[in-house]
């Protein structure tokens, strides 16, 4: 019963903050609502016994990405932009599409497999020294080593790309 109550709290806050993120006129407010949203999603991850991801969610999303957003919002002087109408002309179409997408995606829920199929049961995780983080590390550096390396390359490319794109044109 306690789990359901916690879930209900997280779910309500997540949905509300999501709506506020896209509804706020001022992007700074959006960023702050998003911060709240990310903390609650991290809480949800804890409920799902994904402690490592919960930590990552807060460190990377809340700590790094959102701060980046905030910097950009502050860098750009958006006073004029905030005054205009916030929504584009395809507002209604967007609403219909979003609802349509929700309906279509939710209709796939009946295709769920009936029960657990993997080996990482709760008991197994608890019995492992280091718990969830240790198991993620083990899987990551064995089965997913190659994608992991590729992810590092992607990040490198992103760093270089961001520098190239954002720096001022040098007059040669």
């Amino acid at each position: 019963m306690l789990a359901e109550i916690f879930f209900a709290y997280f779910a309500v806050v997540i949905v509300l903050t999501s709506i506020l993120v896209i509804a706020s006129r001022n992007p700074v407010h959006s960023v702050l609502w998003m911060l709240l949203l990310f903390f609650h999603i991290a809480g949800l991850y804890l409920m799902l016994d994904a402690e490592f991801l919960a930590a990552i969610q807060i460190i990377i999303y809340a700590g790094a990405i959102l701060v980046l957003f905030l910097f950009v919002v502050l860098l750009l002087n958006l006073k004029e932009e905030i005054k205009g109408r916030p929504f584009s002309r395809i507002f209604v179409i967007a609403l219909v599409l979003a609802i349509g997408m929700a309906v279509v995606i939710s209709s796939t829920m009946k295709l769920l497999p009936p029960g657990p199929v993997g080996q990482y049961s709760m008991d197994m995780i608890r019995a492992t020294k280091g718990g969830n983080s240790s198991i993620i590390g083990r899987v990551m550096y064995t089965e997913f080593l190659f994608p992991f390396e590729i992810a590092s390359t992607i990040l490198l490319v992103a760093i270089i790309g961001a520098i190239v794109l954002a720096k001022k044109r040098l007059r040669s």
Binding site: V15, I22, S24, P27, L76, L78, E81, P86, A98
Partner: peptide, 19 residues
């Protein structure tokens, strides 16, 4: 699904590129 759809709606309807 709800969070995703709200994201879709925001992507399609908002004018501000940061949002």
């Amino acid at each position: 699904v709800i969070v995703f759809s709200i994201g879709v709606f925001g992507f399609l309807s908002r004018r501000n590129i940061i949002v």
